[in-house]
């Protein structure tokens, strides 16, 4: 019997580890995107021209932009598809729940990955409608005045609060997701995986805090 390409593919994605590896790789890509995203966001602290110029730069090549957007969409789709499939398997793996269940070491983040995932999925839709396409924005400027779009939006405390809370969830999701990434790809090792856990938390909350800094700065009046 000889293995064919589709055999290999089936063995890979057909197994729970294959699905986890897909989640790890797509998740890692999305995290890298978030790091770039937040680095861009923080330019708003340097003023209107800086951020608007940056936005213009991003839109300069439609091909590149859409190529990147498609990669992002694909990542999100694959990440969510694998997550939902695994979640179904998980429920099948334990059809009868425990009457009493302790949590010995599981962190809040790790236990609520699927729920933080659901909320972030919904947030993602809102966020695109809010800042990319504008339907959810009360006074959207479609001509690239990103600065105005952001500041007017976050001057509403409810909107700012929503973003801050969701960024907290991003931090939570990433704090476990980044560690899980090292496990799923087999990057961990007895001598550094304790540090991997800590590092994952640091990166996750740094990203989240950087994102949250913008609405907080706007609301607090630092950015006008």
């Amino acid at each position: 019997m000889s293995a064919t390409a589709s055999d290999t593919g089936g063995k890979f994605y057909g197994s729970t580890i294959g699905k986890k590896i897909v989640m790890a790789v797509t998740g890692a890509f999305l995290v890298l995107f978030l790091v770039g995203h937040v680095a861009g966001n923080l330019q708003i602290l340097s003023g209107k021209e800086k951020i608007n110029h940056y936005a213009e730069l991003l839109h300069s090549s439609a091909g590149l932009l859409w190529g990147f957007r498609l990669a992002l969409i694909a990542s999100v789709v694959l990440h969510v598809k694998a997550a939902l499939e695994l979640y179904t398997l998980k429920n099948a793996a334990r059809p009868i729940a425990y009457a009493k269940k302790a949590h010995r070491v599981a962190t809040l983040a790790s236990r609520f990955m699927i729920w933080s995932g659901y909320v972030l999925g919904a947030f993602l839709v809102f966020h695109i409608l809010h800042f990319t396409t504008g339907q959810a924005h009360p006074s959207f400027d479609a001509h690239g005045d990103v600065f105005r779009n952001v500041t007017t939006a976050f001057q509403n405390p409810a909107v700012a609060a929503l973003y801050v809370v969701c960024m907290g969830l991003v931090g939570l999701h990433l704090s476990h997701g980044l560690f899980s990434f090292t496990q799923s790809l087999g990057l961990s090792h007895p001598s550094y995986s304790a540090r991997a856990k800590t590092l994952a938390k640091v990166v996750a909350f740094a990203v989240a805090a950087a994102f949250a800094a913008v609405p907080i700065a706007v609301l607090a009046g630092f950015v006008k």
């Binding site: 699905k19 334990r94 790790s110 560690f179 087999g186 007895p190």
Partner: peptide
């Protein structure tokens, strides 16, 4: 089911086998 790296298994393992072996398995699989 699948592994979500929560570590509950190593916490209750009577022989305290660490989940780094799961990472090793994932690497071997890949």
């Amino acid at each position: 089911g699948h592994c979500t790296s929560v570590g509950e298994c190593e916490a209750v393992c009577p022989k305290q086998i660490p989940i780094t072996f799961i990472a090793r398995m994932n690497r071997d699989f890949l």
